[in-house]
Protein backbone atom coordinates (compact mmCIF):
# COMPACT_ATOMS: atom_id res chain seq x y z
CA UNK A 1 0.00 0.00 0.00
CA UNK A 2 1.45 3.36 -0.96
CA UNK A 3 1.91 6.10 1.59
CA UNK A 4 -0.83 8.07 -0.18
CA UNK A 5 -3.32 5.22 0.04
CA UNK A 6 -2.44 4.74 3.67
CA UNK A 7 -3.14 8.35 4.44
CA UNK A 8 -6.49 8.16 2.60
CA UNK A 9 -7.50 5.05 4.55
CA UNK A 10 -6.44 6.61 7.83
CA UNK A 11 -8.30 9.81 6.98
CA UNK A 12 -11.52 7.93 6.23
CA UNK A 13 -11.05 5.84 9.37
CA UNK A 14 -10.45 8.86 11.58
CA UNK A 15 -13.49 10.63 10.22
CA UNK A 16 -15.73 7.55 10.55
CA UNK A 17 -14.67 6.75 14.08
CA UNK A 18 -14.88 10.40 15.08
CA UNK A 19 -18.45 10.53 13.76
CA UNK A 20 -19.31 7.31 15.54
CA UNK A 21 -17.90 8.13 18.94
CA UNK A 22 -19.07 11.74 18.75
CA UNK A 23 -22.66 10.72 18.16
CA UNK A 24 -24.53 9.16 21.08
CA UNK A 25 -27.42 8.16 18.82
CA UNK A 26 -24.99 5.83 17.03
CA UNK A 27 -22.97 4.64 20.01
CA UNK A 28 -25.84 3.85 22.37
CA UNK A 29 -27.75 1.41 20.11
CA UNK A 30 -24.47 -0.17 18.96
CA UNK A 31 -23.69 -1.01 22.56
CA UNK A 32 -27.14 -1.52 24.02
CA UNK A 33 -28.43 -4.00 21.48
CA UNK A 34 -25.72 -6.65 21.98
CA UNK A 35 -25.82 -6.23 25.74
CA UNK A 36 -29.58 -6.51 25.70
CA UNK A 37 -29.61 -9.59 23.49
CA UNK A 38 -27.02 -11.17 25.73
CA UNK A 39 -29.14 -10.45 28.80
CA UNK A 40 -32.34 -11.64 27.16
CA UNK A 41 -30.96 -14.85 25.66
CA UNK A 42 -28.53 -15.89 28.37
CA UNK A 43 -30.92 -14.85 31.13
CA UNK A 44 -34.21 -16.03 29.73
CA UNK A 45 -33.21 -19.28 28.12
CA UNK A 46 -30.60 -20.70 30.49
CA UNK A 47 -32.87 -23.63 31.29
CA UNK A 48 -32.40 -24.78 27.70
CA UNK A 49 -28.99 -26.12 28.83
CA UNK A 50 -30.97 -28.80 30.68
CA UNK A 51 -32.46 -30.17 27.49
CA UNK A 52 -31.17 -33.72 26.92
CA UNK A 53 -28.37 -33.63 24.37
CA UNK A 54 -27.18 -30.07 25.20
CA UNK A 55 -23.48 -30.77 25.41
CA UNK A 56 -21.69 -27.40 25.61
CA UNK A 57 -19.38 -27.75 28.61
CA UNK A 58 -19.09 -24.11 29.74
CA UNK A 59 -22.77 -23.50 30.34
CA UNK A 60 -25.51 -21.53 28.65
CA UNK A 61 -24.22 -18.03 29.49
CA UNK A 62 -20.94 -18.74 27.69
CA UNK A 63 -22.81 -20.45 24.85
CA UNK A 64 -24.92 -17.31 24.27
CA UNK A 65 -21.98 -14.96 24.85
CA UNK A 66 -20.26 -16.34 21.78
CA UNK A 67 -23.39 -16.00 19.67
CA UNK A 68 -23.92 -12.38 20.72
CA UNK A 69 -20.23 -11.66 20.11
CA UNK A 70 -20.47 -12.97 16.54
CA UNK A 71 -23.76 -11.19 15.95
CA UNK A 72 -22.52 -7.87 17.33
CA UNK A 73 -19.38 -8.19 15.20
CA UNK A 74 -21.36 -8.75 12.03
CA UNK A 75 -23.62 -5.80 12.81
CA UNK A 76 -20.62 -3.58 13.43
CA UNK A 77 -19.85 -4.20 9.76
CA UNK A 78 -23.42 -3.68 8.61
CA UNK A 79 -23.80 -0.38 10.45
CA UNK A 80 -20.56 0.88 8.97
CA UNK A 81 -22.24 0.13 5.63
CA UNK A 82 -25.00 2.52 6.74
CA UNK A 83 -22.31 5.16 7.25
CA UNK A 84 -21.05 4.57 3.71
CA UNK A 85 -24.57 4.97 2.33
CA UNK A 86 -25.00 8.17 4.35
CA UNK A 87 -21.69 9.52 3.02
CA UNK A 88 -22.64 8.86 -0.58
CA UNK A 89 -26.13 10.24 -0.06
CA UNK A 90 -24.78 13.49 1.33
CA UNK A 91 -22.08 13.91 -1.32
CA UNK A 92 -19.16 13.30 1.03
CA UNK A 93 -18.55 10.07 -0.86
CA UNK A 94 -18.13 11.94 -4.12
CA UNK A 95 -15.63 14.25 -2.51
CA UNK A 96 -13.67 11.27 -1.25
CA UNK A 97 -13.72 9.62 -4.69
CA UNK A 98 -12.22 12.80 -6.09
CA UNK A 99 -9.58 13.02 -3.41
CA UNK A 100 -8.37 9.43 -3.34
CA UNK A 101 -5.98 8.32 -6.09
CA UNK A 102 -6.53 4.69 -5.16
CA UNK A 103 -10.18 4.31 -4.30
CA UNK A 104 -9.80 0.90 -2.75
CA UNK A 105 -8.13 2.76 0.08
CA UNK A 106 -11.57 4.17 0.89
CA UNK A 107 -12.83 0.67 1.56
CA UNK A 108 -9.75 0.07 3.69
CA UNK A 109 -10.63 3.14 5.70
CA UNK A 110 -14.19 2.00 6.26
CA UNK A 111 -12.88 -1.43 7.26
CA UNK A 112 -10.83 0.30 9.96
CA UNK A 113 -13.98 2.11 11.11
CA UNK A 114 -15.89 -1.17 11.34
CA UNK A 115 -13.00 -2.85 13.18
CA UNK A 116 -12.67 0.07 15.59
CA UNK A 117 -16.31 0.22 16.60
CA UNK A 118 -16.51 -3.58 16.85
CA UNK A 119 -13.52 -3.74 19.20
CA UNK A 120 -15.22 -1.11 21.35
CA UNK A 121 -18.39 -3.20 21.56
CA UNK A 122 -16.32 -6.33 22.29
CA UNK A 123 -14.67 -4.63 25.24
CA UNK A 124 -18.02 -3.79 26.87
CA UNK A 125 -19.65 -7.08 26.00
CA UNK A 126 -16.68 -9.08 27.27
CA UNK A 127 -16.57 -7.07 30.49
CA UNK A 128 -20.25 -7.73 31.09
CA UNK A 129 -19.79 -11.39 30.17
CA UNK A 130 -16.98 -11.90 32.66
CA UNK A 131 -19.08 -10.13 35.29
CA UNK A 132 -22.03 -12.48 34.87
CA UNK A 133 -20.02 -15.68 34.71
CA UNK A 134 -18.84 -16.37 31.16
CA UNK A 135 -16.28 -19.15 31.47
CA UNK A 136 -13.16 -18.99 29.35
CA UNK A 137 -11.58 -22.44 29.32
CA UNK A 138 -9.54 -21.94 26.14
CA UNK A 139 -5.95 -20.70 26.17
CA UNK A 140 -4.76 -17.32 24.92
CA UNK A 141 -4.26 -18.52 21.37
CA UNK A 142 -7.73 -20.05 21.33
CA UNK A 143 -9.39 -16.89 22.62
CA UNK A 144 -7.46 -14.83 20.07
CA UNK A 145 -8.74 -17.28 17.46
CA UNK A 146 -12.32 -16.68 18.59
CA UNK A 147 -11.96 -12.91 18.33
CA UNK A 148 -10.23 -13.32 14.97
CA UNK A 149 -13.24 -15.25 13.67
CA UNK A 150 -15.50 -12.51 15.01
CA UNK A 151 -13.40 -9.85 13.25
CA UNK A 152 -13.67 -11.78 9.99
CA UNK A 153 -17.46 -11.59 10.45
CA UNK A 154 -17.20 -7.82 10.90
CA UNK A 155 -15.17 -7.39 7.74
CA UNK A 156 -17.32 -9.77 5.70
CA UNK A 157 -20.51 -8.03 6.77
CA UNK A 158 -18.91 -4.66 6.05
CA UNK A 159 -17.96 -5.71 2.52
CA UNK A 160 -21.47 -7.06 1.92
CA UNK A 161 -23.06 -3.84 3.20
CA UNK A 162 -20.53 -1.68 1.36
CA UNK A 163 -21.42 -3.43 -1.89
CA UNK A 164 -25.07 -2.50 -1.33
CA UNK A 165 -24.27 1.01 -0.10
CA UNK A 166 -22.07 1.77 -3.11
CA UNK A 167 -24.68 0.50 -5.54
CA UNK A 168 -27.65 2.36 -4.03
CA UNK A 169 -25.81 5.30 -2.46
CA UNK A 170 -28.83 5.97 -0.27
CA UNK A 171 -29.73 5.15 3.32
CA UNK A 172 -32.99 3.74 2.00
CA UNK A 173 -31.00 0.63 1.20
CA UNK A 174 -30.52 0.13 4.94
CA UNK A 175 -32.99 -2.75 5.30
CA UNK A 176 -31.38 -4.44 2.31
CA UNK A 177 -28.01 -4.39 4.07
CA UNK A 178 -29.38 -5.46 7.41
CA UNK A 179 -32.08 -8.05 6.78
CA UNK A 180 -30.07 -10.74 4.96
CA UNK A 181 -27.34 -10.58 7.60
CA UNK A 182 -29.96 -10.88 10.30
CA UNK A 183 -31.52 -13.86 8.55
CA UNK A 184 -28.35 -15.80 7.88
CA UNK A 185 -27.13 -15.32 11.44
CA UNK A 186 -30.37 -16.66 12.86
CA UNK A 187 -30.47 -19.68 10.56
CA UNK A 188 -27.68 -21.14 12.64
CA UNK A 189 -27.36 -22.88 16.02
CA UNK A 190 -28.38 -19.77 17.93
CA UNK A 191 -30.11 -21.19 20.99
CA UNK A 192 -28.96 -24.80 20.98
CA UNK A 193 -26.13 -26.77 19.35
CA UNK A 194 -26.62 -28.00 15.81
CA UNK A 195 -27.49 -31.54 16.91
CA UNK A 196 -30.57 -30.25 18.77
CA UNK A 197 -31.94 -28.29 15.85
CA UNK A 198 -34.78 -29.95 13.96
CA UNK A 199 -36.60 -29.66 10.67
CA UNK A 200 -35.77 -27.07 8.07
CA UNK A 201 -33.61 -24.99 10.38
CA UNK A 202 -31.36 -28.00 10.97
CA UNK A 203 -31.01 -28.61 7.25
CA UNK A 204 -30.33 -24.96 6.51
CA UNK A 205 -27.97 -24.47 9.44
CA UNK A 206 -25.92 -27.48 8.41
CA UNK A 207 -24.91 -25.81 5.14
CA UNK A 208 -24.77 -22.24 6.50
CA UNK A 209 -21.12 -21.15 6.71
CA UNK A 210 -22.03 -19.07 9.77
CA UNK A 211 -22.69 -22.34 11.59
CA UNK A 212 -19.06 -23.39 11.09
CA UNK A 213 -17.83 -20.02 12.39
CA UNK A 214 -20.18 -19.95 15.38
CA UNK A 215 -19.49 -23.56 16.36
CA UNK A 216 -15.72 -23.15 16.09
CA UNK A 217 -15.83 -19.92 18.10
CA UNK A 218 -17.74 -21.72 20.86
CA UNK A 219 -15.31 -24.60 20.75
CA UNK A 220 -12.37 -22.19 21.03
CA UNK A 221 -13.72 -20.46 24.15
CA UNK A 222 -14.37 -23.88 25.65
CA UNK A 223 -10.81 -24.96 24.86
CA UNK A 224 -11.93 -27.93 22.79
CA UNK A 225 -11.16 -26.77 19.27
CA UNK A 226 -12.60 -28.86 16.47
CA UNK A 227 -13.00 -27.92 12.82
CA UNK A 228 -11.31 -24.55 13.40
CA UNK A 229 -9.58 -24.73 10.04
CA UNK A 230 -12.94 -25.28 8.37
CA UNK A 231 -14.34 -22.22 10.13
CA UNK A 232 -11.44 -19.99 9.07
CA UNK A 233 -11.67 -21.41 5.56
CA UNK A 234 -15.39 -20.61 5.40
CA UNK A 235 -14.84 -17.13 6.86
CA UNK A 236 -12.00 -16.29 4.49
CA UNK A 237 -13.94 -17.60 1.50
CA UNK A 238 -16.88 -15.33 2.42
CA UNK A 239 -14.47 -12.44 2.90
CA UNK A 240 -12.93 -12.95 -0.53
CA UNK A 241 -16.32 -13.29 -2.20
CA UNK A 242 -17.70 -10.12 -0.67
CA UNK A 243 -14.45 -8.26 -1.32
CA UNK A 244 -15.10 -8.77 -5.02
CA UNK A 245 -18.73 -7.74 -4.50
CA UNK A 246 -17.69 -4.55 -2.72
CA UNK A 247 -15.02 -3.65 -5.26
CA UNK A 248 -17.52 -4.05 -8.07
CA UNK A 249 -19.85 -1.82 -6.10
CA UNK A 250 -17.08 0.73 -5.86
CA UNK A 251 -16.69 0.61 -9.61
CA UNK A 252 -20.42 1.16 -9.99
CA UNK A 253 -20.22 4.18 -7.71
CA UNK A 254 -17.29 5.52 -9.71
CA UNK A 255 -19.15 5.01 -12.96
CA UNK A 256 -22.12 6.90 -11.53
CA UNK A 257 -19.85 9.75 -10.51
CA UNK A 258 -20.34 9.12 -6.80
Amino acid sequence: MSARSRSVALGVAWRGLHNFFGNPSLVIPAVMFPLFFFAAFAGGLSNVANVPGFDFPEGYTTFQFVFVLIQASAFGGVFTGFAIARDFESGVGRRMLLAAPNRRALLGGYALVAAGRTVFVWALLTALGLLVGVEIAGGVAQVVGMYALAMLMTLTALLWAAGIALRFRSLQAGPLMQTPVFLIIFIAPVYVPLNLLTGWVHAAATVNPITAVLTAARDLIAGVPADVALAFGAALAMLAFFAVWALRGLRRAEAAGG
Binding site: N50, Y191, V192, T198
Partner: peptide, 27 residues
Protein backbone atom coordinates in the same frame (compact mmCIF):
# COMPACT_ATOMS: atom_id res chain seq x y z
CA UNK B 1 -42.33 -1.78 2.74
CA UNK B 2 -44.65 -1.35 5.69
CA UNK B 3 -46.91 -4.37 5.30
CA UNK B 4 -44.54 -7.05 4.10
CA UNK B 5 -42.22 -6.84 7.13
CA UNK B 6 -45.25 -6.57 9.44
CA UNK B 7 -46.34 -10.01 8.26
CA UNK B 8 -43.12 -11.73 7.24
CA UNK B 9 -40.84 -10.61 10.04
CA UNK B 10 -42.95 -12.13 12.83
CA UNK B 11 -43.46 -15.24 10.71
CA UNK B 12 -39.76 -15.57 10.09
CA UNK B 13 -38.93 -15.27 13.77
CA UNK B 14 -41.71 -17.72 14.48
CA UNK B 15 -40.22 -20.23 12.02
CA UNK B 16 -36.69 -19.79 13.35
CA UNK B 17 -37.65 -19.97 17.00
CA UNK B 18 -40.09 -22.83 16.58
CA UNK B 19 -37.42 -24.94 14.92
CA UNK B 20 -34.44 -23.56 16.83
CA UNK B 21 -35.94 -24.14 20.24
CA UNK B 22 -38.02 -27.18 19.38
CA UNK B 23 -36.04 -29.20 21.90
CA UNK B 24 -37.06 -26.86 24.74
CA UNK B 25 -40.42 -28.66 24.76
CA UNK B 26 -38.53 -31.59 26.26
CA UNK B 27 -37.86 -29.65 29.45
Amino acid sequence: AQVVPAITFPLFLFAINAAGLDSAAEL
